[in-house]
Design a protein around this nucleic acid. Structure first.
Lengths: 115, 115
DNA sequence: CTTGACCCTGACAGTGCTGTCAGACCCTAC
DNA sequence: GTAGGGTCTGACAGCACTGTCAGGGTCAAG
């Protein structure tokens, strides 16, 4: 399918689909006239990218993870890092939550002092 | 005092002190030769900016808040918005925390599925 | 009067996307 | 064969800072 259709099906903008490719997350075939030609696997990849992105991951991080998630066997050889990266992301999120909670406390303090 | 000293005393980089000014948060006097000349009030303002910034607020938001915090009477007339802005910021933070928690859940799910 | 530390302005870079526009080609249908 | 819609690449813009560099004044001390 062409880029417009994939965009419609996944809800990811055409712009971002091209960006994914530029960042090495996607490598669709090309038609003779140079149009990007996506298949089912690509569509699934896009959906996975969406999920991981929704989890707050950077495209760069997602790229590291993709080869692991792409097939359904997470134990696949090149994925020794999978657990490590995921765990790292979780603690990164924990850090951010901690910072925000701190901020919240400060603001709430201001707020109550204004009565 | 000159900008270098203020920077040393507050821990805010010279670059950022100039940026604060460009954004209208600070308006130091100038010496005849054009040097910025900060006084005690400015130093305190910078400390307040730091605090609010640490609470995750945008400089733009801080600017709205500054005239209220500048003096010690939070009930001062032009500050009807103070409570509103603060409350707004708090709920904004709550939103962000919520999103992150969601992300955390997704990632933790992945993580446990890898066993 | 020169040196060295400090200050000035203006501008470019980088982050991590995301939109938008320009100029040009492709394709289908009428 | 031409109109309309889709696609291509490349580039600029914006967010909210933050660092750094260039080119050029200022000032106090020796």
């Amino acid at each position: 399918m062409k880029i417009g259709e994939l965009s419609r099906r996944t809800g990811v903008s055409v712009r971002m689909l091209r960006y994914y490719e530029a960042e090495g997350l996607l490598a669709p075939q090309r038609t003779d006239s140079g149009y990007r030609d996506y298949g089912q696997p690509e569509e699934e990849t896009v959906r996975r990218i969406k999920m991981l992105g929704a989890a707050g991951m950077t495209l760069e991080t997602i790229q590291q993870l993709l080869p692991c998630v792409r097939n359904n066997d997470p134990e696949f050889t090149p994925c020794n890092n999978l657990r490590r990266i995921l765990a790292q992301q979780v603690s990164l999120i924990d850090e951010r939550i901690e910072t925000l909670s701190q901020s919240r406390k400060i603001l709430a303090g201001y707020l109550s002092s204004v009565n």
